[in-house]
Write a protein that binds this DNA or RNA. Structure first.
Lengths: 237, 237
DNA sequence: CCAATGATTCGGTCTGGGTCGAAGTGCCTG
DNA sequence: CAGGCACTTCGACCCAGACCGAATCATTGG
């Protein structure tokens, strides 16, 4: 009769603290951050941050890479990012319409990094376009795999021949591509290894650039053109 | 520079408390529960439960239906269920393999209700089978819609003619069917309005029955036969 | 080998929030 | 109308855990 305490309560408790939540929100940007950097960003002393990070590490929400006397933290994996986005999607619900339309949040709504893939309206467009153009198709199990139009599209997106091969190789792995609920658009954007590769590519080609402080990503003039060409099929909406 | 406190921290705080988490876990079963019932289930006094439920209600995690002097609570919507499952999927990670194989948890892993659809191994089989048989197919935007084999399958599943029509009508709505990460199987099971209809149908036909205390669902002898027939395509693995 | 810097550990303080007893409100039944 | 039941509100208590000061460890550079 007596329900046992669910394990998710413990994870929720880790996210519940304002300082830890702000650290996690920063890490959602995808980049590794040192302990001190995180402490300063959320205005707490290094020793407090240290205890917080130890807890996040212990629970497996973040991973650690020590480099000299710095310790760099990143989100553990895409599952953690998905969980945070799911929380945000419930937390933001009704606020979305009003808040997102302010000038301050518009860039964030248009495009941002989520862990290490593209989110926001542009991420949703990417998701819809790649499926509509059959670059990605559902296999028998409902997972997304490369479709018949994949090679053409990758070529059009200026992937090199060897890069295409490496994508094709990665496509065999689990978690290659899947939908992830976008909390501002409230529709799926594209997540997974393929989505990471694409975002890296966009940044490398200079179609997107990171903005100073936030997770927001701004398209460059050349990027605007490329995206409207590559995602043309999704622009019908 | 100073990162604002993310709104999801507030939601996480609501789930972080052991008593509230246990209530939410109970409500994940999909059935409405009265305040007193929830209080007894988690071993707290009615007045404590009342403050908890008021908070959950205020945050929109649960909804309320007052009936006489009883107040019945249910999970607010499928987004909340998805969020809880995402949390659980991170929280359970490594435990899954060991814990689920104990006799105590096996029924839960095999089939359980998630909000108001079918989860667990059977839920994953359903998801995979309906897609493999093209009862459900992805549309241009990646959402699942009824496919060319839908009518035949519904007929085979003993849906009446008018029930088939009502399903076809419901198929136009948003959130008709979509994948939802299953935290025990770690693959997608089927969620959405269609999934709810199917679970209700299985219960009505006596193919599944609710077990006493948990969210676990047990297949009846006739259910075993029906499921192996209806989900045949997924039994390859 | 000695600062200087990044990070952790320890000990003590303090507050937010969960808890229950007691009392109050509303609804249903006899 | 009276009594009972489901639930809520109020007040007081108490404790887990966030926080910081001080000290310690580790790495780098001079």
């Amino acid at each position: 009769m007596n329900a046992p305490e669910p394990r998710f309560a413990r994870v929720a408790a880790l996210i519940a603290d304002a300082s830890r939540a702000r650290m996690l929100a920063l890490l959602l940007g995808g980049e590794a951050r040192s302990a001190g950097e995180l402490a300063r960003a959320v205005s707490i002393t290094p020793q407090t941050a240290s205890t917080h990070l130890a807890q996040l590490l212990d629970a497996g929400l973040v991973t650690l890479r020590a480099q000299g006397r710095h310790r760099y933290f990143t989100l553990a994996d895409a599952d953690v990012a998905r969980m945070l986005e799911a929380l945000a999607s419930v937390a933001e619900r009704d606020e979305v319409q009003t808040r997102w339309d302010t000038a301050r949040f518009k860039p964030l709504k248009y495009a941002r990094s989520c862990y290490c893939h593209l989110a926001g309206d542009l991420g949703v467009q990417q998701h819809d376009a790649l499926i509509a153009q059959r670059v990605l198709v559902s296999d028998d199990a409902g997972a997304l795999v490369l479709g018949e139009a994949a090679s053409d599209w990758l070529h059009a997106a200026r992937f090199s021949g060897e890069a295409v091969l490496s994508v094709r190789h990665a496509a065999k792995k689990k978690r290659f591509a899947y939908g992830c609920m976008d909390w501002s658009a409230r529709r799926d954007h594209l997540a997974g290894a393929f989505a990471s590769t694409l975002l890296t590519h966009y940044l490398d080609r200079g179609w997107l650039r990171k903005t100073s402080t936030h997770r927001a990503l701004a398209p460059t003039p050349s990027g605007v053109g490329e995206f409207s060409r590559l995602f043309a099929a999704a622009f019908r909406q």
